[in-house]
Write a protein that binds this DNA or RNA. Sequence first.
DNA 1: CAGGTCGGTTTGTTTTTCCAACTCGCCGGG
DNA 2: CCCGGCGAGTTGGAAAAACAAACCGACCTG
Lengths: 150, 150
Amino acid sequence: MAQTETTKPNPTVPGRPCPAAGALRLVGEKWSLLIVRELLLGVRRFDAIARNTGAPRDRLAARLRALEEAGVVERRAYSERPPRHEYHLTDAGRDLAPVVTALAHWGSTWLYDEPPVVFHHRDHVAALDTTPTCTACGSPADHLTPHPHS
Amino acid sequence: MAQTETTKPNPTVPGRPCPAAGALRLVGEKWSLLIVRELLLGVRRFDAIARNTGAPRDRLAARLRALEEAGVVERRAYSERPPRHEYHLTDAGRDLAPVVTALAHWGSTWLYDEPPVVFHHRDHVAALDTTPTCTACGSPADHLTPHPHS
DNA sequence: CAGGTCGGTTTGTTTTTCCAACTCGCCGGG
DNA sequence: CCCGGCGAGTTGGAAAAACAAACCGACCTG
């Protein structure tokens, strides 16, 4: 659900109208997707996120605020006095998992002498397939089409 | 195939060892993924890419060179005198399609009052599913696992 | 009370980014 | 021949962002 269920801002971007450009305005800044990665992995504390991403602390603070404002991250107080917070993903944030996974898959395929990202499903370990599929016929939909709106 | 088939550089990243971080070093810079989007759509000329992405011309030139060096983009001369080039994706570059598609899907779902990115397959128009799947059992693999190497 | 943790903010410096203007080589009129 | 225009960049300078390191306040722990 869109946060607060008001109509969405429908941000305009320069160049080709395309939702990928809008998405990149939010999560395309440096460190943002690594922060989301940590949150997807269940890391919730400022210091831990800073360590695990390598982001400078001031950038991390700024990104977390921006992501919170965008409705991707939720900040929960786990202690008054001293004020302490932990960070959680919203539904929108969790929906970024395919983006992070696709990046990881591409990276392990093309950048590293390693097997592609593995997926530990119940009792087996296997590679992933990040190809998007058509919801109508289930076949791979791996070529881009220009955005059809307006 | 990895360009020149030498062993890959295996770049190290600060923080958690994760191929997503390596991928973001290359394509996480501003404009890079929008450039890849244009190339996926078949746009090959400098000026057209600049218009369609909104990127400043000097940044576009820098990103194209970086992507070329990384083996994501190939620059082909289509005219000597004056030297003119057009840009194509390598196999590695085309493999970024799932990343761009996942971003577009997320953007249209959470940022716009629009139906999610559509896919024009042969004779039907339908939404996409960007959830990665397990190659072994075919089930959705939408939770992240820490990278198991080293 | 000394030292340590957590979640930041501040400070000063280095890098990037941006934009507009300019270049270079050529082509097509007039 | 001269003029303008196009494609594909490059250059210069100013503004914005990122960086690293130090600092801070409110606790806890020994």
